[in-house]
């Protein structure tokens, strides 16, 4: 059933280390770029260009008192922050970085991503619930509502791709784009998927579960030290996953554009996949710097009244075109 052609130990180690390092470095990259976008310098004191800022942050977080609120549900409180990085790393496993590079090659790769993204919402929910704090609970409610809503049309938005590529396997989806990236036939799908993806990973401007203007810090109000750090790492891994999945689905994954392939296919694939992922990572940072947070009702009505019809129309048209082409 499962084919492990890419699941060598070297591969696993490579993906895990690279994924984690990139995620963690994103914290610094994001802060620096946020600085540049707002005419500041960003963290530049620790190490060259401030590159070790993350290490300083990590040391600080690890050295902080590991405090568990006496009024919380202690077991759940401890478990909740672990869920997020775990499931996000699991999602990372199915991403095809290059031919022969990746942890798993699943037939249901796309569904796996969705399944993991669905599980990630437990982290938010349980964290908020276990804190036994009204602000945390409000944040958890917001997170749950937001994730469930956006998962719906996120799923619908990529059905067009499944129809076009005739597969749930991410490697096959990439290969199906040999003749042209899906972003062209599936432009609306891409737009909906990206917006939903930001909302799904509750990054700015859709970070309502921790909207500090109203609810202190939302579901992680009571968290501090490394438990808070886990939430943060999980979020950044999610960001990496999301930035990697978009090129895979819509921009031809490791495929070089305009025949700019070089070296063997793995080197070239890793380069182009990396370049495309980086572009979206930086795009996420730009979005965070530029856009303001909507109200929660705006978020929901935008999702159900705009995104859902848009994704459905996209699916209908795709289906119609495919059926027409098939004769």
């Amino acid at each position: 059933m499962f084919s492990f052609e890419v699941g060598s130990l070297l591969n696993i180690a490579l993906v895990l280390v690279a994924g984690l390092v990139i995620s963690i470095m994103m914290i610094w990259v994001e802060r620096r770029f946020l600085g540049f976008f707002s005419d500041r310098l960003g963290p530049n004191r620790v190490g060259p260009f401030g590159i070790f800022q993350v290490i300083a942050d990590a040391v600080k977080m690890l050295a902080k008192e590991d405090w568990i609120p006496p009024f919380s549900d202690k077991f759940t409180f401890v478990i909740a922050p672990m869920i997020l990085p775990i499931v996000m790393l699991m999602s990372l496993g199915v991403i095809p970085f290059a031919p022969g590079v990746g942890v798993m090659d699943l037939n249901i790769g796309l569904l796996w991503i969705f399944a993991m993204a669905g599980l990630a919402s437990y982290s938010t929910m349980l964290g908020g619930l276990a804190s036994n704090n009204k602000f945390a609970l409000l944040g958890a409610l917001r997170g749950a509502g937001q994730m469930i809503s956006y998962e719906v049309f996120m799923g619908i938005s990529i059905l067009g791709i499944v129809v076009l590529s005739d597969s749930f396997n991410l490697r096959e989806i990439v290969e199906a784009q040999e003749d042209g990236w899906f972003v062209i036939p599936q432009f609306f799908g891409f737009v909906v998927f990206m917006v939903a993806g930001i909302a799904e990973s509750h990054r700015w401007p859709f970070d309502l579960p921790e909207g500090e203007a109203e609810i202190i810090s939302g579901y992680n109000t009571e968290y501090s030290g490394m438990k808070f750090g886990l939430f943060m790492i999980g979020e950044y891994i999610g960001m990496v996953v999301m930035s990697a999945i978009i090129p895979v689905l819509f921009f031809g994954g490791w495929l070089a554009p305009f025949g700019l392939e070089f070296g063997n296919e793995i080197i070239s694939g890793l380069f182009w996949m990396g370049a495309k992922t980086s572009f979206f990572l930086l795009f996420f940072v730009l979005v965070r710097a530029a856009l303001v947070r909507p109200r929660y009702d705006q978020l929901m009505s935008y999702g159900w009244l705009v995104m859902l019809p848009l994704s459905l129309i996209n699916l209908l048209i795709t289906g119609a075109v495919v059926l027409y082409q098939a004769g």
Partner: peptide, 9 residues
């Protein structure tokens, strides 16, 4: 907005 903020880079 995205464009204008991008220019600040």
């Amino acid at each position: 907005s995205l464009w204008l903020v991008f220019l600040h880079l």
